[in-house]
Design a protein around this nucleic acid. Structure first.
Length: 288
DNA sequence: GCACAGGTAGATT
DNA sequence: AATCTACCTGTG
């Protein structure tokens, strides 16, 4: 059976990854539609189906669509200077930050489609990454449009709205189904809404996102960071809260106080710092 | 059986 | 304004 994928080709001017930073970028909880195969990663977003393979610091790609290269540039935010942003983080004075940056140097923040990012993180509350991925896969298989390799994309909001809450519950969404369906109904009625979020300043965009059912501060910040390129958005989940309270010694601080600390200590790219810290804590480099 | 998992919203103190 | 609690489901 002929493969739908193109032959492997070198991705010229690709982002500089290490094995650890590539794996963490794709599988570390920013995105939920990447899987690791024998010697490559396979991922889906929008209408794309892409394979990536790191061979001695060179990145090779195989894809199903002719516009994969341009889509990859966008998805990986290739124009964004992550090396420069890393250098600007306070690793020189902060040994915790230094540990995280050294372990995952080259880590990137993906620029995922905003709507898909919102959907995935609405699925994420009190779920672990493997479960979130399973839910996304189930919803895509059930109601997402077919991709050229026979797999499925995530459905759009109108499709989710029409499907109804009960249909979503068959994907094991549980109580999240009500939030997702209500959000879908709102977005189906307001097709320009997500685009306005993309162009609004971070503070305003966050306020708007918080109006959606099921979206609190943590999910709003994940959507802004991973789906809108807002490096100042600093999601505080249970991991990050533990890192801040224990490793940084901020016991007793409440969430708004921790947000203020993050902004002042990590600077304008605090969200990027958060992803380094999150990765390092999960890998055991930082006691959490 | 029971606690807990990359939360949120509504009620209660 | 800080602190419970219900909400689904899977995992250990």
């Amino acid at each position: 059976m002929p493969s739908k994928f193109s032959d492997w080709e070198l991705w010229e001017n690709a982002p500089a990854f290490t094995e650890a930073s590539l794996k963490e970028t794709l599988l570390g909880g920013q995105a939920f539609r990447w899987v690791q195969k024998e010697d490559f990663f396979e991922g889906r977003w929008a209408t794309q189906v892409v394979r990536l393979r790191l061979v001695e610091e060179a990145l090779y790609l195989a894809s199903c669509e002719s516009d994969a290269r341009a889509a990859l540039d966008q998805y990986f935010a290739r124009a964004t200077d992550f090396a420069g942003m890393t250098d600007a983080l306070p690793w020189r004075s902060d040994p915790i930050m230094k540990t995280a940056v050294e372990a995952f140097n080259g880590l990137r923040i993906l620029r995922q489609p905003l709507g898909e990012t919102l959907f995935c993180f609405l699925c994420s509350s009190t779920k672990q990454i493997p479960q979130i991925k399973a839910i996304c896969e189930a919803v895509a298989s059930d109601m997402g449009p077919k991709l050229s390799d026979g797999s499925h994309a995530l459905p759009d909001w109108l499709t989710i709205a029409d499907a109804g809450e009960a249909r979503l519950r068959t994907a094991k969404l549980g109580y999240r189904a009500r939030y997702i369906h209500a959000t879908a109904c709102f977005l189906a009625e307001h097709p320009e809404w997500l685009m306005q979020i993309e162009s609004a300043p971070t503070e305003q965009a966050r306020e708007r996102l918080l109006e959606l059912p099921g979206v609190g501060r943590k999910i709003a910040d994940c959507v802004l960071l991973f789906g809108a390129g807002r490096m100042d958005a600093f999601p505080i989940d249970t991991w990050v809260e533990k890192i801040l309270t224990r490793a940084y010694g901020l016991e007793g601080w409440n969430l708004p106080q921790l947000q203020t600390f993050a902004r002042t200590h990590f600077g304008p790219n605090a969200g990027y710092a958060q992803q380094y810290l999150f990765a390092a804590a999960r890998a055991g480099y930082i006691p959490a």
